[in-house]
């Protein structure tokens, strides 16, 4: 796969009143491959929104280079930048639809800006509204639509000029779970049916699980971990990624949950990582059985990321063979960690 977007040592610093400056994005190098869906995840204030705005040059980097389709955006004039932006779609958390225009008017706006003739504009608008399932609402005004419908209009507008790249800034964060799923599956279709590369900025687990191929974890302006979404979520390497994954997946007990569990379960608490290794349950059972260890399931969760099993189960273990059981699990390649 070739690279569509590449950030090289990109920083964005803002000046503070006291003369110091703060880095919203700090020396980030990151590649987005053509045809993939990359999720950039992290807590609020990690610099995700600034990062995505550097990709379509809504923000100019303080240092470093941003390349999109081989073109160095940092070297472009304002006029050339506007053309580059028309080849990058963007959708927003608050949809940012034009209230003074109809649904069709919103979708046609980027085409007007690009100087497309009226007949072609209308044909393209109808085609896009059909794609997002809102052809019958073409003459409605944005305030007459539900949140999910508004975001579908936002997606149609972002795709009007046929951009090869779509940026989604917390696109589902203002929506309820059902609507979120509907918008995410539309984004998936945009990727698979139209071949559009997508960068999704999100702090929501569902957005990652349902659409992303790869994931980049951000903390304090830095990208601390990048990888296949399954790898990062099933086996996060950095402390920042581990913290985020834990809070997003809820399958490992938090400190508070752990303290509560201990009041009912005085035995040793061990969390076992569930992967898509075939027969992992049988491996775990065998380790406990062979060492005469009693096991009680007290916490955990198993779900799917990109159709692969992942999760964590926490057991209360009893008997004299617990250490032997842990050794047996590890030698069988099963990750087991005692909660302390």
């Amino acid at each position: 796969m070739s690279t569509l977007v590449s950030l090289e040592n990109v920083s964005k610093r803002y000046d503070r009143r006291d003369g110091t400056s703060v880095a919203a994005v700090d020396d980030v190098s990151l590649e987005v491959r053509e045809g993939e869906v990359l999720a950039v995840i992290g807590y609020s204030g990690a610099g995700k929104s600034t990062l995505v705005r550097l990709v379509n040059a809504l923000e100019r980097p303080t240092s470093g280079t941003v390349r999109v389709g081989g073109q160095d955006l940092t070297a472009l004039s304002e006029r050339e930048l506007r053309q580059a932006r028309s080849r990058i779609g963007m959708i927003f958390q608050q949809f940012n639809l034009f209230r003074s225009r109809t649904v069709a008017g919103n979708v046609a706006y980027p085409l007007r800006v690009a100087g497309v003739a009226k007949a072609q504009r209308e044909a393209r608008t109808a085609e896009l509204l059909d794609f997002v399932g809102l052809l019958d609402r073409a003459h409605a005004h944005p305030e007459q639509l539900s949140g999910g419908q508004k975001q579908r209009v936002g997606i149609a507008r972002a795709l009007a000029t046929n951009p090869p790249l779509l940026l989604a800034d917390e696109a589902t964060s203002a929506l309820d779970p059902d609507t979120t799923a509907e918008v995410l599956s539309l984004l998936r279709r945009v990727n698979t049916e139209l071949g559009v590369t997508i960068v999704v900025i999100t702090h929501e687990m569902d957005a990652v699980r349902l659409v992303a191929d790869r994931v980049a974890v951000m903390e304090a302006g830095r990208v601390v971990e990048v990888g296949d979404v399954y790898d990062v979520f099933s086996d996060p390497q950095t402390p920042a990624a581990q913290r985020f994954v834990r809070s997003a997946t809820h399958d490992r007990p938090s400190a508070g949950t752990l303290a509560r569990l201990r009041t009912h379960h005085p035995g040793r608490l061990v969390s076992v990582r569930i992967t898509d290794e075939p027969k992992i349950q049988q491996l775990i059972d065998a380790a406990f059985r062979d060492t005469g260890t009693s096991a009680e399931l007290v916490y955990g969760g198993v779900s799917e990321i990109r159709e692969r099993r992942t999760g964590s189960l926490t057991y209360e273990l009893g008997g004299t063979g617990v250490d032997a059981a842990l050794a047996a699990l590890r030698s069988a390649g099963v990750h087991a960690e005692e909660e302390v």
Partner: peptide
Amino acid sequence: GVVEAARAVGASRTAILFTVVVP
């Protein structure tokens, strides 16, 4: 936000002023 949306599709500053902000 709507000004940003217009910038993101490549509208010029003059176009944004008269086709987005004023309406």
